[in-house]
């Protein structure tokens, strides 16, 4: 699945340069640099505590890095005003949390959850918002008659799909995903991955996906970054990294996958 045809322009959408985040004396992530092109899916793998989530939070603006530069579409993200950055976070960017409860409003109906981002950018027509919410629920395979149910009445897989719909409704160009398949059973995972792959392809999204599941990146990611102890130890095309791992840790990681 690692096709490079989706990469259409030569200008990177996101450019990250020696990004570093420390927690006191400990390293969150250190000296991370990469370019992400439009339509490209970048996987970030590594064991727990390797700095994957720290990296993602820094990129999405949830944490402020200590060193380094992030430029999005030619603009310096770290120099932006907070208003601008949060606006970007509601429109051009999306963040899919590992736990859908973190990304959804559990007390608000599914339609309201999907509509929130629309209303946040100024949609003020109830009928339009609802039509769009219905459309998006359909695209993530949630029946239209569940639109007024709260997420707490949904299964884990449905909640995760709802979270994805809520994030994609404003047509973002860059999506951050933190373990989107974590905590789901394998058959639900497979359907979710299928759905994600379709959406990414149809919408031409750029995605940074953090996971410890190599099967997920094999399916979704064009390029792969392997992290250990806060540093990137290997990066390249997904198939290349997985089929011919160079770093000792990557070899260990690849050989640790259980075979059925």
């Amino acid at each position: 699945m690692t096709v490079q045809q989706t990469i259409t322009t030569d200008q990177p959408l996101l450019r990250v340069d020696s990004l570093t985040k420390r927690y006191g004396a400990r390293i969150g992530c250190a000296d991370v640099s990469f370019d992400l092109y439009p339509g490209e899916v970048l996987g970030v793998v590594g064991e727990s505590g390797s700095g994957k989530s720290t990296l993602l939070s820094c990129l999405a603006g949830h944490l402020s890095p200590d060193l380094g530069r992030i430029s999005y579409d030619g603009r310096d993200v770290l120099a932006m005003s907070e208003t601008e950055r949060r606006r970007l976070g509601r429109t051009d960017w999306a963040y899919v949390h590992q736990n859908p409860r973190d990304g959804l409003r559990m007390g608000v109906s599914a339609g309201g959850n999907v509509g929130e981002r629309l209303m946040a950018v100024g949609a003020r027509h109830y009928g339009d918002i609802r039509a769009k919410a219905t459309d998006w629920l359909g695209r993530v395979e949630i029946a239209a008659d569940r639109i007024d149910d709260r997420p707490s009445a949904f299964s884990g897989g449905m909640q995760q799909r709802l979270q994805i719909a809520r994030n994609l409704v404003t047509g973002p160009r860059l999506v951050f995903m933190d373990e989107p398949t974590g905590g789901l059973d394998v058959s639900v995972q497979a359907r979710l991955l299928d759905l994600l792959r379709g959406l990414v392809r149809d919408l031409g999204l750029s995605v940074i996906i953090v996971t410890h599941d190599l099967a997920v990146v094999r399916l979704l990611a064009h390029r792969l970054m392997v992290m250990k102890s806060g540093r990137v130890i290997e990066q390249g095309l997904t198939d290349q990294v997985l089929d011919d791992p160079q770093a000792a840790y990557t070899q260990l990681l690849v050989s640790s996958v259980l075979q059925v």
Partner: peptide, 8 residues
Amino acid sequence: GLMHVKLY
């Protein structure tokens, strides 16, 4: 935007 979610 959240205020309108309540009205929604």
